[in-house]
Design a protein around this nucleic acid. Structure first.
Lengths: 132, 132
DNA sequence: CTTTAACTACTACAAATGTAGTATTTTAAA
DNA sequence: TTTAAAATACTACATTTGTAGTAGTTAAAG
């Protein structure tokens, strides 16, 4: 599933609300977004409709209400959008990105520890693969 | 300098060309971009003009030609756009992003080795800081 | 000198996104 | 019963981005 996913700020906020709630009506999404700043209900509705048109969300009817849910996973989205950023700005090299984050001191001690472990795991996988 | 930088695909391609060349005329930028696909010279000119309006590029006049150069560094751009992605999709946690990349097996053995070293460096910095 | 190429200024269109008001209908509350 | 709230359908506007043609001028090539 190499489908490109490109979502702008508000679209992502809406998706985050759906991922969090599992499914939601326009009003419920609005409520979540409103914690940050107020938006007209119709703005939220429009975003959802357009996302639906793109196949990014789906809905079922409940009475006269549309109950929306994400049609793409958060994981897929993360992968797709990270890939794009790495391709566009890091010459396709994830290591440059991670280097930058480490240099910027973006991790606490526990996270560094966890990363070390993940690197070990990755190295093990690499060794296993190279023996095949 | 916490200035938000948001550049879309073509804008980034133009910036990459400027960063690579140091400075360039519209025609020179077009030549670089053309390696991938052809674009009207006026399209490139328009993008550069709009970027200039935003303060993202600057130019000097040479005869009747504009010689553009980037007014923001690649590093700044990388930091800003990575921050946005992490905030929007990774709840502000860079470690989740790196976890994902490691799980996706995006690094070769040498890169993993280099990352280990960077983590050690980061850990040392952490310890130094905690002793202050 | 003439023709061609290069370059900017100007103009315009389409698509996508964010924003939200109005009209209508249905449902819930007073 | 009436009023208010909720929800969708419809509509419209502004901004941004990508796309590129036309006109006019200047510089380079033939």
């Amino acid at each position: 599933m190499g489908k490109e996913i490109k979502l702008d700020e508000l679209q992502l906020k809406v998706m985050n609300a759906l991922w969090e709630l599992g499914e939601a009506s326009v009003g419920e999404v609005q409520t979540v977004l409103e914690e940050e700043r107020s938006l007209a209900l119709t703005t939220v509705a429009t975003v959802l409709q357009r996302l639906h048109k793109r196949g990014v969300v789906s809905y079922r009817k409940q009475g006269r209400q549309y109950i929306y849910q994400a049609a793409i996973s958060k994981d897929q989205t993360r992968k797709s959008m990270t890939r794009r950023l790495v391709d566009q700005l890091f010459a396709g090299k994830s290591s440059i990105l991670v280097n930058q984050l480490l240099e910027e001191d973006k991790f606490d001690a526990a996270e560094l520890e966890a990363l070390k472990q993940l690197i070990k795991d990755a190295e093990k996988r690499k060794k296993k693969d190279s023996l095949k």
